[in-house]
Structures are given as structure tokens and as C-alpha cells.
Design a binder for these strands. Structure first.
Ligand SMILES: [Mn+2]
Ligand SMILES: [Mn+2]
Ligand SMILES: [Mn+2]
Ligand SMILES: [Mn+2]
Lengths: 220, 220
DNA sequence: TTATATTTTTAGATTTATCTAAATTATATT
DNA sequence: AATATAATTTAGATAAATCTAAAAATATAA
């Protein structure tokens, strides 16, 4: 089965929302897709007729197994292309998302497989998100939010929750990227902000909001 | 100015036809694009309104300077991606065209520039066709059809006229690729076929039709 | 529990790209 | 030059993806 660019974007949007809420509803998908609820309803009919969705009018919807597999295919392509853009073309990691948003719709399966091999079959994209394999299997990693880490413990940044350009731009200023090692020194109870030390730089302070969106794992 | 995928494909089609005939007419473009003359007329109106064409009803049409620049941009992207697919992903050169036909429409200008640098700013694609630079400048190379080469002269294959999968598949069987060195031994007057010797292989015979579509230049 | 607000769907319009069939214009042949 | 043929355009239809406005269903609050 093959899908249009629009179908693929919707499938991916539903997948992301149902990760969090189980059932997805029309308005939240409309917000996610930056479109109108009426357009969502149109697309839901289409995806249901292609047997990718469980959907009852007014009751919400979610992808079935075929739909989830379709979503994981697109996510795999998106993250592989992001990896290519950062590792091979030396893009900054906060610039690649919109380009991967286009590249993920290139249809050749052989292209994806060869790209995967060319890149050395990476497990995580430049934002630390896992890259599904060709069967849709996702690697897992134990990680915690930076806001939950004990003081003085050495940890490695593994991914970022909020991936807006604004957030990524901010992290660049702190010199924080995937793989960066750091330690939490102190928590300010006043606003929940953290004093942290990033590798060889001077200690600095990040807001609670940033801390909650930075995920880390133990240093190997 | 940005263009839809369909607009870009038409622009490229017109460019290729006007290289040969100067003025292009509706039916030949319809044949080239595998569509209907009526669809061509619709698109001509659109491209004219975007000021890419000189077009008088019933009198034929051709791209103006803006149109030619737009065409060269797409051709540049197409050929850079083909180079990437063959050189980096190790695709056979007769498999890359349809994939590049999609990749050429990815819009990021920075992507193209970085890809160009990553590939080492190549001048020719895997079929021997020149890759325009970002200003639309095309490298030139003196080349002749294999059917015009004197006997026993050592030459290097520089490009292929007919780039259908059928032709490229045939050349693969003869072990002929861009960069292959060969010599013409004899011409059979009966059907115009040529006996040639490809590097260290046994001599073999190619039809006149193949010979006319293989272009070569002097060995450096 | 009834009234009000929110969510979702339907109905119908718009835009883009395409098509077929018919009309128009240009070219070739007698 | 008149007629036949070929090329091109127009008119109108279809399909996909979107939209707005209104109707219908559901959820919430007085
Ligand atoms: Mn996308
Ligand atoms: Mn990512
Ligand atoms: Mn194309
Ligand atoms: Mn080529």
C-alpha cells in the first residue's frame, strides 16, 4: 500500500498523539496538523477506508496495526534523513526538521535501506529520538529528565523533549547537544531552576522548563 | 519564486525540448510529459502568468531567461542527487533516475549547496551529463558520437544519449560505463554495426543505434 | 435536568491538476 | 482556393485536498 504525502503526515500526527493519550480526537489532531477539524474528518474517512484506523464518529480514533506500521515507516525515514543531514552534510541539529519533513515522503524502499547502511544503521537521530528498523522495531534506552537527577552525578544527554526551533536554539547557546556530559550542582527552590556544569565550561543556570525537557542517561 | 512539483517537471520538459528545436509545441511537450495536450495548455497559461515563458497561442513557446534559470536549478538538483545515489549509496547507474525525479523537488537551497560540497562539487552526473553550478553555468566537454571515431583510436566514454533503462541495461551487459576506455576496430557496412574492444575484454559488436548514443572524448 | 458551551460532523465552496470531447485554428493536398 | 487533415485550444467534468458556515452530537454547569 502506498500513501500520499498528506496521508503520511496525518498518519504520523495520529501516531504521535496516540502515544500520549491512547485515543485521539479530532480537534487535537487538527491542532497538531495545523489544519481545520473538517479537514481532519475528511482524512479520517479516507484513512478508515484504507483500513489504517479504528474510528467511531464522535468517539475518537487510533491507528490499528497496519496504521502503526505505516507511521513507523515514515518516522524511520524522517529520522534517518535527519541523521544524514547532521552527520554528513553538517547541518545544525535545529535546522533539519523541516527538510526531513519533505525527504520522509520519497518513496523508494531501496533508497531507505541503502541510506540506513550508508549511515551505519544508526539507532538514534540527532535529537536523541530512536530510529525504528525496517520492521518497525524501536530501540529502547533508560532515560530520566534532568530535573530528577541527583546532584553531582555525571550523566549524558540522550534526547530532548520539546523540539521546537526555539528550544534547540536555546540549548545551542548552553552548548548542550545529544551526547554532552554534564552534572547538576544545585536546585534553586525559588523557581525550580538548576545550576549545572557542562563539560569544561563554567557552571550555568537553566530554567525548570528546560530541565524537564532534557533527558539523560548514565555515562557508560 | 517557488514552484510546484508539476510546474518544475514541465519547466524541465520544455527546457529539454527547446534545446533541440528552439520553439516547442504543445503536442511534443504532451508526449514528453506523458500527458494530454489540454493539460499542457493549462500549464502553459500558468507558467506564462508566472513570467517564465514566451508563448503565443498556436505559435509555440519557449522559456525566457527566468524560465531557463528555473529549469537549470531543477536539473542541477536532479544530477547532484543522481551522483549521490551512485557514488555514496552504490546504486547502479540505471536505477537512479526515477528516485532523482522525486528528490529534485525537495526545496531547501541550503540542502543543495551542502550536498554539492559533500559530493566534492562534481561536474558530471553518472550518465555523463553536466551538472550546472548554482548560477546555472554548465561545464562543456568536447565529445563525439562513437559512430564518428576513427579505427584504433583510444577514447573514453563521457556520456550516453538515450538514457532509458533499456539502453543503460544493455550497456551494463557490454561492461560500458562513463569513464570506460575503448577502441573501435571495424565497421560492418551491412548494418552499420561496430566491432569494438572494451579495455581488457574480448572484442564485441554493438549496433549502429547503440554507437550513435554513446559519446566519447579523447583519453587524457 | 435543563440550558449552555464545546466538539465534531456535514454540506457545500474553492483550488489545483488532471481528463475527454468538441470547437477552433493552422497546415497540407488536391 | 477549397477541402481535408492535423494541431491546438476551450469547455466542462473529475478527483484530491483544503476551507467556511451551519447542523448535530456530546459534555458541562447552573
Ligand atoms: Mn512530512
Ligand atoms: Mn528528530
Ligand atoms: Mn521530477
Ligand atoms: Mn542523469
Amino acid at each position: 500500500m502506498s500513501f500520499t504525502t498528506s496521508e503520511e503526515n496525518y498518519i504520523k500526527g495520529i501516531f504521535h498523539l496516540q502515544q500520549e493519550t491512547g485515543l485521539v480526537n479530532t480537534n487535537s489532531l487538527a491542532a497538531e496538523m495545523q489544519t481545520r477539524p473538517a479537514s481532519v474528518t475528511d482524512m479520517l474517512k479516507k484513512l478508515k477506508s484504507k483500513k489504517l484506523l479504528q474510528y467511531e464518529k464522535y468517539k475518537g480514533f487510533k491507528l490499528n496495526e497496519a496504521g502503526k506500521k505505516a507511521a513507523l515507516d515514515v518516522i524511520r525515514k524522517h529520522r534517518l534523513w535527519e541523521f544524514f543531514l547532521v552527520e554528513k552534510l553538517k547541518f545544525d541539529w535545529d535546522k533539519v526538521h523541516p527538510i526531513a519533513e519533505e525527504l520522509e515522503h520519497i518513496s523508494s524502499e531501496e533508497l531507505v535501506q541503502r541510506l540506513d547502511n550508508f549511515l551505519g544503521n544508526p539507532s538514534f537521530d540527532p535529537h536523541g529520538d530512536p530510529i525504528p528498523d525496517k520492521n518497525g522495531k524501536i530501540p529502547v534506552i533508560k532515560q530520566q529528565s534532568l530535573s530528577e537527577i541527583p546532584f553531582k552525578k555525571n550523566v549524558t544527554v540522550s534526547s530532548v523533549g520539546n523540539q521546537t526551533a526555539q528550544m534547540l536554539d536555546m540549548l545551542k547557546h548552553y552548548n548542550i547537544a545529544i551526547g554532552t556530559q554534564l552534572t547538576v550542582l544545585k536546585k534553586f527552590e525559588f523557581d525550580g531552576s538548576l545550576e549545572i556544569k557542562v563539560s569544561k565550561q563554567n557552571a550555568c543556570i537553566i530554567s525548570e522548563q528546560v530541565a524537564k525537557n532534557v533527558f539523560v542517561h548514565d555515562v557508560q
